[in-house]
Each structure stands twice: as structure tokens, then as C-alpha cells.
Simulated assay, not measured.
Amino acid sequence: MGRRKKGRAVSGWVIVDKPAGMTSTAVVNKLRWAFDAKKAGHAGTLDPDATGLLAVALGEATKTIPFITDAEKAYRFTVRLGAATDTDDAAGRVLDTSDLRPDTETLRAALSDFVGDIMQVPPQYSAVRLEGERAYDIARSGEEMELEARPLHVASLTLIDRQDNDHAELEMVCGKGGYVRSIARDLGRQLGCLGHVVSLRRMWSGPFEIDQAVTLDELEPLYRTEEIDRFLGPVEAGLADLPQVRLSAEGAMRMKNGNPGAVVSADATFGDVAWGSYQGQPVGIGTYRAGALHPSRVFNL
């Protein structure tokens, strides 16, 4: 008989304002311990030096992670013009420098080339896999590699502030898989002045916004206490971008057993992926058709 997982069967979302100098995985591990949760995960990695919104799922909320990972996200970041680094951020080794500095109008005009459906090459120091290995492990070994460009949808890229000739503060809204460091690198190359990221902050991710976030310092006095649960958002918070259907009592029972559940009312149309509820509680996620929700994920709440 396998050993039972330790911890509470606690489920929900914790929206954290990640500090700089800490990996996303380290934040998740700390939160899992702090809430004494059996299971935890996050919806979208932030670089160690980045700050801002990190959506951490506990328990059954981990089943909704893909819907946040796939959602649009917004980043506020500062590009240092005049230097390229091997990591495309300030933590890396300077590879080349330039004395050229574009004027603000030239910089602003260049941003339009990075909006829409673009192809983006990930940074050498990234979690992308190449022949089974992480790119950052290959890069650290000193081996050269070529990473393939990947499609990315950028909804907007806006100049927020030009503090001085060497710096530009930008905001980007993009889809899944976007690397802000690649935007800074490629923008610098296009302008002929080179560039890298010196600060990065995620402002929102899907339905979650930074003003909802709690810091680890705020949580720390409540670690491993019942009071910490007040920072736990509902499982269905991760499903805010999906339509909802309401199940009958029998439909909810059938869906929990892995069968299509009868729907009494729906905000969905035929073929939509939707989440089903009964008496306000989430039951599962599935495809809505023929008056029933056909389950793909079921919650054990």
C-alpha cells in the first residue's frame, strides 16, 4: 500500500506578489508548506529576478492551472539600451555594447513590429527543452545552441516612460509562452543599439490582478495557522474566463462519477468548454453539448 500524502485537503488560489531573487518553484514550495497543503502548483513561471503576480494553486485548484497558463498576461518592464547580455537580462555577462541611442519617436515606432502574431526565439537561458535538456543547462555548460522561433501573440506593446537615453519602460500584453527578455533583446537589435531587461513585473494574469496579491512577508506570521486560509481564493476563480453551466442534482452526481451531467441552465453554447456547478459549488470542467456537460476534469471538493 502506498503512503498517503501528508497535509490538508485544502483547495483554492493564493495570488502572491513574488519578490525578486526567488524562483517561482521556491514560492510554491513555501506556500504548500505554509498552508499545509497536499498539492500545489503555479500558473506561469516568473524569472528569479522578476517580481509581481504569481498565481499559486492549492489542491483541486491545480486542475484549473491550464486555463490561467493559456490566458493573456501583462508585464511592466524596463529595457537598458546599449548593451546585450548572454541571459538577456541584468544578471548576465555583457556580450557587446553600443553607443547608439534611438530617439523616443524612433523607439515608439519600432514597437509596432512586435505586436500581433510574431515569431520569437526564446532566450538561451530559458526552460525550453532541446533534445531532452533544458536550454539553461546547456547554456551554463558553455555549449552553443540554436533555439527555434516559436509563435507568440502580442496584444499590445506600449512605451510607458523614457526615463533617460539609456532606459525605456514598456508594458506588454501577450499570450502563452512569451519571453519579455526576448522582446528586449530583439528590440535592441532592431534599433541597432542592443538591449536587455533590467526590471520586470507581472501586472495581471487572466482574471487575477496585482492588487489582489499578498506578499510573503504578510503571509509569514500566519504560516501553518487556520487564519492563513483567509488569503485563499475559491477554486472557480481560475475559471473566470470560461462560461458556467448549472447542473441538476442528478447531473452533478453523474458528472462526479465521470458521466455527462444534465444541465438546467447555461451561459455556454454548444461545443464550449465550460465549468459546471451545483448549488454554487464547482463540480467539474467539460464540453457542453446536447443539454449536458461531458466531463474532462472533476473536482473532489
Rank of each mutant, 00 (worst) to 15 (best):
D186G: 09
L239H: 00
F35G: 14
E143I: 04
E250T: 05
N165T: 13
Q120G: 00
V16R: 00
A135E: 01
K39M: 13
G52T: 08
E218C: 02
Q281M: 15
T78F: 07
A109S: 15
G177E: 11
Q212M: 04
A237R: 02
Q212N: 08
M22I: 11
A20K: 13
V79L: 07
L46Y: 05
G142Q: 11
G280N: 04
R289P: 06
V198C: 10
S248K: 06
L232C: 04
D36E: 15
L53G: 02
L53V: 03
T85S: 11
A57K: 09
D267C: 09
R129L: 04
L111H: 07
L95M: 08
F114V: 05
G178H: 03
F208R: 01
E146K: 12
D164Y: 12
K5A: 15
P234A: 06
S296C: 15
P234R: 03
M145V: 08
G175A: 07
T269P: 06
A252Y: 02
N300I: 11
L170M: 09
L31S: 14
M172K: 01
G142C: 06
E143G: 12
T51G: 13
K176A: 13
S199D: 10
V128Q: 09
L191D: 04
D47T: 08
A268R: 01
D211F: 14
G251S: 09
G21M: 10
